[in-house]
Structure formats: structure tokens, C-alpha cells
Amino acid sequence: MIKLIIVDDHAVVRSGLRMLLDGKNNIEVLAEASEGDEAIKKAVELKPDVVLMDLSMPHGKDGLTAAKELKELLPDTAILILTMHDDEEYLFQAIHAGASGYVLKSAPHEELLSAINMVSSGSAYLNPIATKQLMGEYMESFKNGGNSSSLHSLSNRETEILEWISKGYTNKEIAENLVISVKTVETHKSNLMEKLGLKTRPELVKYALKKGLLNFD
């Protein structure tokens, strides 16, 4: 049996998911939680195979923060994000937080079941629509010459900062980790974006993904 915890701030959503999942397709729902801290407490106690986690929980710890903390405490527990946010920024933040999968609440229940089975077995799962949109935007940028530049044009420090940015760290966090000023980080970021012909953080993430710089071990 796949042992699972449901985390969502809406009781109706939790109830509906329990009715859909519990006792079906080799899934056992161990518990429910309405926010991140409660989810962490129950997960540490029950040690589920999968935590099905919402992102937006305004009355407690949010899903991204909880996912990151939970992954540190229970590295063998898979975290599957179930959210309404069809946005690549949330997608990459979820990956950075340690999530193994990302499913939209609008997805058919067959997709959710498939995602649960995949992440419980150690595989990753990304929503097909989000992936298609991400690749479509990347290809469009590539056609326009935005991502065709080589990593060889970047200095070692610029490449290092690109890696930090692509993993979701803020300029302040990068500065603290590299023991440099925020202004220096901003300067390097500006220079590498100019060299690569990119304008936004999502474009930098896509570039890093293509070049194999995203390593979350």
C-alpha cells in the first residue's frame, strides 16, 4: 500500500481527495493536515510514502516552505504538489523545495493517481500542460536567438551565480552564500543576462535546464 498524507487548507478539498484515494488503487490515506507545520508533525510521526501538498495555505506555513523542511527531515518521503497554479515560477520553486511531482487541481483524477504511483516508486512527475508550455516558451525564445549563446562566454563567477539563480535563490541569499555584496550579485546577473540575451529569471532557469546546470542533490 502507498501510505499518503493530504495537505490542503480547505476541508472540502481534503474530504474529496480522501474519498477519491483512500482504499483505492493501493493507496491508504494516513492523515490530513490544513497547513505546513501540521503536515510536518504528522509526517514525522507517521512516515508516509507520499505527501500530497497544496502550495497556497494562507492560515499557516505554505506548501513550498513545508516541502523544503519536510524533505530535510524525511528524505525518503516523496512530495507531490497539487495546486491551482499553472505557472512555471511555482514549478521550479517546487522542484527546488524538493518536490518529486507537480499536478494541477484541474487535472483528471487518473492523472493524479498516476502521479502518486510514479513519485512513490522514486520517479518524478510534472504536469504535461506545464511541461509543454515551458518547452514551447523555451523553443520560441531559442528561435529568437535568446538562448543560443554559449556558457563559454560567461566567467566562472557568472556561471556560479546562474546556477544559484536557476535553483530559486534570491539575490540576497546568493550574496550570503557566496560572501559577496548584493550589488555584486546584481552586477554579475546583469552581465550574464546581457551575454546570453535573456531578460527574466524564468528565461535563465530554462537556459540552465538546457545546459544541465540544475542539480538538486
Rank of each mutant, 00 (worst) to 15 (best):
I79S: 10
L20T: 07
A124K: 15
E163A: 09
T200P: 13
H59N: 15
N191Q: 15
F216A: 00
S190Y: 14
T65C: 09
L55D: 03
D76G: 06
K206S: 13
L52T: 04
V179M: 10
E194T: 12
L4P: 11
N156T: 11
S166L: 04
M1T: 12
D87S: 07
L30G: 12
M118R: 15
T170K: 07
L52C: 06
Y138D: 06
L213Y: 10
S34D: 12
A175K: 03
F92K: 01
F92T: 04
T170M: 01
N127W: 04
N144S: 10
K105G: 12
T65I: 03
A130G: 11
L70R: 06
T200S: 15
L214R: 10
E32Y: 05
M53V: 11
A66R: 06
P202N: 02
L91C: 03
F216D: 00
V182R: 13
L178N: 04
E110Y: 08
A31Y: 05
K3S: 15
G136N: 14
L213M: 12
K172Q: 13
T77P: 05
G168P: 06
V205G: 03
F92D: 06
G197R: 06
E69H: 09
I116Q: 12
G168Y: 05
Y138N: 08
S148D: 05
G63W: 04
L214H: 02
K183Q: 13
F216W: 01
L178C: 02
G168A: 03
I165G: 01
G136Q: 08
G212M: 09
S141M: 07
E72N: 12
E186M: 10
K206I: 01
W164E: 07
A67V: 02
I161G: 08
I165F: 07
T200Y: 11
E163N: 02
G212E: 08
V103I: 13
N171F: 03
I95L: 15
I180P: 11
F216N: 00
M84R: 06
L52P: 11
S149D: 10
A107W: 02
L126V: 14
T83W: 07
N177A: 00
K105H: 09
T200A: 07
N26W: 00
K105A: 10
